[in-house]
Every structure is written in C-alpha cells, then in structure tokens.
Design a protein around this nucleic acid. Structure first.
Lengths: 188, 188
DNA sequence: TGCTCCTGACTGAATTTTCAGTCAACCCTT
DNA sequence: AAGGGTTGACTGAAAATTCAGTCAGGAGCA
C-alpha cells in the first residue's frame, strides 16, 4: 500500500470522525488529503471501495494502539482493565477511531459489503480479550465474558460520544462491569 | 393525526429499518407508502420534519410494546429480564425500533440538536430499569447496574443488527450479564 | 550518453446521477 | 364554489463518477 493511499485513508478517518460516513464527501476528503478527487477513484475504485478500505485501515490501526502501551503488564487483571479502558479516553486519536468505528458499524447494518471485515475485526477483538480473561480467571466462560465486556465498551463508547454519559462515568461503569463479571478486585 | 400521516409514518419506519435514517430517500418512502412525494412535503414540511415525526412515532410505539406483555408480572427478576430481552427480538417492529434508535444515536454524534431528546430518552429508560433492579436486589447500586445493562443491550443490539452475533447468542449473553450483575437465578 | 517508448501516478474539467424540494392543476367533500 | 388533500412533472443544486490528458521517471537500445 503506497504512502499516498495511507495519506488518503488517514484523512478519511478524520473526515468520518468529523462528519460521519454519510457526511463524507469525496471532494472534502480530497481536500483534506491534499489530493484530487480523481486520485481517490484511481486508487479506490469508488466510494464504497474507499469505505471498505477505510474500515480495514481503522481496525488495523486500532489493533496496533490497543496492543501498544499495555503489552508487558504482569497483572492480567490490570492488563484487561487497561485494554478495555483504552477505548474510553479523551484522546483525539481514540475519539477519532471510536467515532469512525461506530459509524462503520452502523453503516454495516445496511451495507452487507462492510459486514465481513467488521465481523472479523470484532471477532478478533473478542478473541484477544477472551485470552486475557482466561488469564484472570479459570472459573468463568472467558468467551462469554469477553463478548459481553467488548459489547459493553461499544455501547458505552457510543453513549459517551453522543453525550449521554460523561467519560468518567463510562469508565467507572466499565470497571464495575469487570468487577461484576470477574469478582471484586485483587485476590489475596 | 390523519390516517394518511400514520400510513406514511409506518412506511417510514419500514424504510428506515431497511436502509437507515441516512438511506431514507423521500421518493422511496413515497413509493413504499403509496403516495406522491409532494404529499409528504405537504404533511411534514421537509425531510427533517419527517424524520422528527418518525422518531417520535417510533418511540411511542416502542413504549407500547415494552410496557405491553410484561406488565403484571409478579417476579421482578423475570420482569427485568423480559423487559431487556424485549429489545432483542426478531420482530419487525422491534427491529425497526432498534435500527432507528441506533441510527438516531449515531446521528446525534454529529448533530447536537438531536442530543437533548436522546439523552432524555436514555435517562428515562435507565431510570425505569433501575426501578426494576431495585426490586430485584437491595445489595447492588441499582443505577449503576441499570446503566450498564441498558448500555449492554445497545451494544448487543447493534452487533446483532450488523450481523456480528446471532440473535440467540445476544440474548444468551444478556441473560448471563443479568446473572453476573445480580447473582445467579431464582433465590430460594 | 542521449533518444524513444512506456507506464503509473496524478489532475482539472466535464458529465452523469441523485435528491430534496416546488408548483400548478386536479380531485373530492361539504 | 371553496378549500383541504393529492398528484405528476419539474427544477436546481450537490455529489459521484468519468475522461482526456500531463508529467516524472524507468527500460531498452544506439
């Protein structure tokens, strides 16, 4: 993938985070990326292709920043917590990513083309989370717990972004859910 | 409200469930409702007015089906479960409702005008749920639990609609969450 | 080295498509 | 005959998509 394409995809993520998928105008994207509209068609075929590639791009990028920065933690419980909380941070890139992610998920409801990459990205996130859960406790169904916690993160994230909860509250609720699923904090 | 208007609003709910708020074309709606586009402008002024009325229509209808069919239940735990599960059903009107709701929430991220009614509707749902939670158990923070469970329902609902989980799985996960939050089933 | 040919990246300027929104004129009822 | 309800035919603007062509650089070759 050429650096030009990356440049366009980064711009697409920004524009989507700002205006939504439906509010993405190819011309505006071109301006944001500093290229011509025609170049976008040259590289991505059409608007739908651009969207599909953007979704892939965003989910790869999410993998990266989720994996980063927490990696070597020794306490699995703390690591799980941090991983999930990393989706609820008032940081421009997290915000951008979550917003774009939510938009794409919402769009996937109506555009079957987007579903496959979305499902795969979701499953991969759930798997990674389940792995962590497994390390925290052997007494629970890790897949179930992981699927619930990640779905909850999505629900809270959307409420946060749409102004229905504060970030602090959302984070507190998430920590509470981890407690409810895995038992209260630090075993003796 | 004339029957003509109801006819259009019902059609709008169907079209939104099929294509989303963003994908609603006035012309398509007209065809679905079996009327002319001009009539829609006559009754609803413009697309935004139509959307507003449709959202009101849908949420009133949702209140009805949520309240219905569960009302007189004696066991609070069962009632709570049923209320929450009622959002995850493969019934056209539930689907329409959930879809429209998700769309509205997603749109609110970019359109501050929509935030106030959304926040209020969410808060009201959380309050009602907390009331039920309170009746199930006095040992938990009912507001927290209710906020988490409803956020989880939203997350699961979106995953269901976008094809990332099956309906059965989503329902099972939700029941599991209630268990994790409130302790396992039926006290002695 | 200097020349021609070729290709992939890229653009500006159309062209085409898609939509919300309007309007003048027809129903019906009453 | 008057007025609310209804429509088909349009319009204008905004967007998507295409097109004809420029340009930089690389491969082959004299």
């Amino acid at each position: 993938m050429s650096s030009r394409q990356v440049q366009v995809l980064e711009a697409a993520a920004r524009v989507i985070a700002r205006n939504g998928v439906r509010g993405l105008r190819v011309e505006e994207l071109a301006a944001e990326a500093g290229v011509s509209t025609a170049l976008i068609y040259y590289h991505f075929k059409d608007r739908a292709g651009l969207l599909r590639r953007t979704l892939e791009f965003i989910s790869e990028r999410a993998d990266r920043y989720t994996a980063d920065g927490v990696a070597g933690d020794v306490d699995p419980r703390a690591e799980l917590e941090q991983r999930l909380l990393s989706e609820l941070q008032d940081d421009p890139s997290v915000r951008e990513n979550s917003t774009a992610w939510g938009e794409l998920r919402a769009s996937a409801i109506f555009e079957p083309d987007l579903r496959a990459p979305l499902t795969e990205a979701t499953a991969s996130w759930v798997r990674d989370t389940a792995e962590l859960v497994r390390r925290v406790s052997a007494d629970v169904d890790a897949d179930e717990v992981a699927e619930r916690l990640t779905a909850l993160v999505e629900g809270l994230s959307e409420r946060w972004l749409s102004g229905s909860v504060t970030l602090e509250r959302a984070r507190g609720l998430l920590v509470g859910a981890i407690g409810a699923e895995l038992g209260a904090r630090s075993p003796a």
